[in-house]
Design a protein around this nucleic acid. Structure first.
Lengths: 332, 332
DNA sequence: TGTTATCATGTAAACGGTTACATGAAGGAG
DNA sequence: CTCCTTCATGTAACCGTTTACATGATAACA
């Protein structure tokens, strides 16, 4: 593997001149440049990444930490981050943790060792104390999910309000006993949506019934079987607010299996406005948020931080309830 | 940011001793080690990644290049690769190219610069000549999609046979005019499945009708609108073989919109056996392949190569047609 | 007691770039 | 002709590790 030394020797110049040709920030005589390029070609030379990083004290790389890549909403966030990164001349690397502490530790360690110049965290389980330490070593931005009061900027939606809106919509349709399918992973989004759910109930004078809370894992089949079990308990209900469209789809199918009709007997709301909402019939009413805007905002903050600015922005983007067939009955 | 020098000075030892404590491969007196660890703690010291990589001439990192992360089948492959990588003490980084030449070039460049010790390619558009050059600089393995005769190992299924099996199944149900929804992106899988489709037709004495070929993009909504248009042409058909479950779902819904019944009037087969196959009704018959096995096999080959072994394995895993409601009618 | 083996540790040379500074030639002004 | 700029290029230090080799102390043994 050829080094800059070999190229310099072959071209009959010093390593400094080769470096100047590579980086193009300094004047080099055209014929010298030609000789250098020829030598580079001859050796199939490519400057070593680690060596450059070591000297420059930067890697032009950022990490995106997420628990899983299969979520289409998160994929939009990632795409937006990558787009901003590319514009800035950065490499974006996706790291999946599967909510596994050992994997998270691996990537945290990478950050501490300056593998990357910064990171965007999308739904990790990292603990507050760990994050507090880490943020002093490397620029961090939280995206979608977040822990407050860490002095780490975040971009998200008002999940409490979103949970409130979804639940209130069901209440306005006449629902009184609303099942909430949530995900018991301690994520801020789940907790806040649950708060919103309870707020809407309270406001409508409906008392909270813990038996109506179902804990799922975002997946279709999981929700399907959980709701089948729930239906067997015969606990009456007339609405479902699910934390994902896939879980909403599972709820719809289990309800229909039991001979009930959606939305007439049970109205259903999902979350994230993914194409699963269109895939099942009836189409699913869902809370929509813009992954693109969220990713862009987070990325912009991260690059501000990488440039050395002290920022601690908290950005709340808007969400919107997309009303479709799964809740479209006459509003009383 | 503290360096090994600072730690050495603080602990009153040489940098070599600190290095020995960090790597733990050499004897160090317990009290010396204690002093070093104390100093490391004091400075919040973490060894610099670039410096170590430069010296060791390895990065303990591998790249997974893929066009998009939203495909659940590909996600399983990635998970398997990551699991093997973790066992080997490697970091796996996911790089998405979105079938965009500029992005692919960025990652190829990273590989040439020894950002990573190797890479697994899952469905990129990289050209044969480029790959041929690259494989001489860094270990590569092709996974799922592949270009033959590159001297780059690959792991895949027999997509031609899979296309044949899917089509033959439809023919055995009595279908004579089978629409094939494919993806015109030049991928090996699409091309081979198409070949299998034509093979099955020929074998059954059915002549190939190019009007029955529809080009989609793997997505549900795309297939839905394409099939709506197709239905308006009034070209008769009685079966659909789609290159993804999402496209199969789109086909089913468009057919049902048109007042036809699945599987009675039109039987439908999808691909990849994803949970979308369960999400729509009728459940979709689909070709199943094991992402876990595929990822594991590819990873094992890659690490053999990283260890310096010259290998050029070509592994063909088995696939299976999962028959469900979308084709379940009486076999004639 | 002298010789040698063993052990913990230090010294310094890499690894492959970047870049501040030095150098020397050519050109322009007086 | 001399002095000063300007320009292209070279020299060498530096980034933070690892590791072969050197060193000196201690233990083992004759």
């Amino acid at each position: 593997m050829a080094s800059i030394q070999d190229v310099a020797k072959e071209a009959g110049v010093s390593v400094a001149t080769v470096s100047r040709v590579i980086n193009g920030n300094c004047k080099v005589r055209p014929e010298t440049e030609r000789a250098v390029r020829q030598a580079m070609e001859y050796f199939h030379y490519h400057p070593n990444f680690s060596a450059r990083n070591l000297r420059r004290m930067e890697t032009k790389t950022v990490l995106v930490l997420m628990s899983t890549i299969v979520n289409p909403f998160l994929a939009k966030i990632v795409k937006a981050i990558e787009d901003v990164g590319m514009q800035q001349g950065y490499h974006t690397m996706i790291c999946t943790t599967y909510d596994d502490a050992a994997r998270e530790e691996v990537y945290m360690d990478l950050l501490r060792k300056h593998f990357a110049d910064g990171a965007i965290l999308i739904g990790t389980r990292l603990k507050a104390t760990e994050l507090r330490k880490l943020r002093q070593q490397v620029p961090l931005v939280q995206c979608s999910e977040f822990i407050p009061n860490l002095m780490i900027p975040y971009v998200t939606i008002d999940n409490r309000r979103a949970g409130y809106d979804a639940t209130k919509h069901l209440i306005q349709l006449g629902c009184r006993r609303i099942v909430h399918i949530t995900v018991d992973n301690g994520s801020s989004s789940s907790q806040l949506r649950m708060k919103g759910y309870r707020m809407a109930l309270e406001e409508a004078g409906i008392s909270f019934d813990p038996r109506l809370i179902v804990n799922g894992n975002y997946g279709y089949r999981n929700a399907l079987s959980l709701m089948r079990s729930f239906l067997q308990t015969k606990i009456p209900f007339d609405g479902v607010f699910a934390n994902s469209d896939r879980m909403a789809a599972g709820a719809i199918h289990s309800v229909e299996e039991a001979g009930l009709k959606v939305p007439e007997d049970v109205a259903v709301v999902g979350f994230d406005n993914t194409d699963v909402g269109y895939l099942v019939k009836p189409h699913i009413t869902s809370v929509s948020q813009s992954g693109k805007e969220m990713g862009e905002a987070a990325a912009q903050i991260l690059w501000k931080m990488i440039e050395g600015k002290e920022v601690c922005e908290k950005i709340i983007l808007r969400h919107e309830l997309m009303i479709r067939e799964s809740t479209r009955k006459n509003i009383i």
